[in-house]
Design a protein around this nucleic acid. Structure first.
Lengths: 192, 192
DNA sequence: CATATTTTGTACCTGAAGTTCAAGAAAAGG
DNA sequence: CCTTTTCTTGAACTTCAGGTACAAAATATG
């Protein structure tokens, strides 16, 4: 019973995610959210409680979509090394093509909050863990297929690739061209 | 003629740098700065014009100190690879030992502003360029000394090391231990 | 010492952030 | 169909960010 919501919370969170991604948490105002979600301030606070809680939901949404995309890219056909290269390249290209150069919401959040925000840090860590796991799985597959030397620690390479992606997405935020990013990607992939 | 300043602007900028480093640009209020610098608001705005101008000065100060530290570390005696490993390790250790886990001010600034702030982006780019240059110089030295294979592009390795550092300093902001960072450092250095 | 010039702290202003609330509208139950 | 419950809307409220204006104080220069 009671009046039904006039908007879809899923859609609202996704729109909020776009705003937080573009402007950061601190840079986003309730008014920005009201404008982007197309609902009144009251509804916003009734539905999500606070700017921060909405942010958590948005970050969770981002994390799920982003990791799903990465996993999908890593599951494409072809040699593992080529898949990895393609995944990184596509990531860099996407970031550079974005007119706002938003980079990665999780990385930006890590930089914005550090550990001063418990819930944010938890969400970011989880996203990083999942990303590393996805890379590790790909590496193990490559080792089983004989494409990657079996004497290297998959977890270590996973960490290294995670770190590479994090770096790339920061550099992409201020990059004026693709050169440096390409050098990085080639440099990393060629050592595998 | 006229009264002399009661405080040392250099010291003031350095203190401001500490505040911006800890709280970010958006998270720093004029009151924070007044408290940290120990001068009145009037003096602050008289001396620096605006929060943003003071931030630029602080970022410049940070950049100069930080790159000087890096260059000094890379100029220590010993094999180049060991110098690089030590430099990265010390960086990670410093970040983890910092109770606030502030990471790198330039990286945080890149993440906070992206390209929405022209002057900030310029300062960050310059810091990144200098860092890459420092690494490139070290690599070239290593190649001359026969420690590093001469068929690799020093600029590319410089980019790769820069990217590694940027990634490390983001991961350090949310890391709960040194394990992942160590894996990354060893993974990168061992491929040189 | 006189004066011009600068510094300094305080008081003040404007706008917005972040949230709450009262009043009304729509859906379900008796 | 009336009550109950939940949602909606927009205004109201509180606090503070960010910066300006000012008058008093201090000091280099002639």
């Amino acid at each position: 019973m009671g009046r039904a919501k006039q908007f879809d919370p899923k859609v609202a969170v996704e729109r909020a995610m776009q705003v937080f991604w573009r402007k950061g948490y601190g840079g986003t105002t309730p008014q920005d959210l009201v404008d982007a979600l197309g609902i009144g301030k009251g509804s916003l606070y009734n539905a999500f409680g606070s700017k921060h809680r909405l942010f958590e939901a948005a970050l969770e949404c981002y994390r799920d979509k982003e990791t799903a995309t990465l996993v999908a890219m890593l599951e494409e056909p072809g040699p593992v090394k080529e898949r990895l290269r393609r995944a990184l390249t596509r990531l860099a290209e996407t970031d550079l093509a974005d007119p706002d150069h938003r980079g990665c919401l999780a990385v930006n959040t890590a930089a914005e909050f550090g550990r001063s925000d418990e819930s944010a840090v938890r969400l970011v860590r989880r996203m990083f863990d999942r990303t590393e796991d996805a890379f590790r799985a790909a590496i193990e597959e490559g080792q089983r297929a004989g494409e990657i030397r079996p004497d290297r620690d998959p977890r270590a390479i996973g960490s290294l690739l995670l770190n590479t992606v994090v770096g790339l997405r920061v550099l992409a935020r201020v990059a004026d061209g693709p050169e440096r990013l390409s050098l990085v990607i080639d440099g990393v992939i060629d050592t595998l």
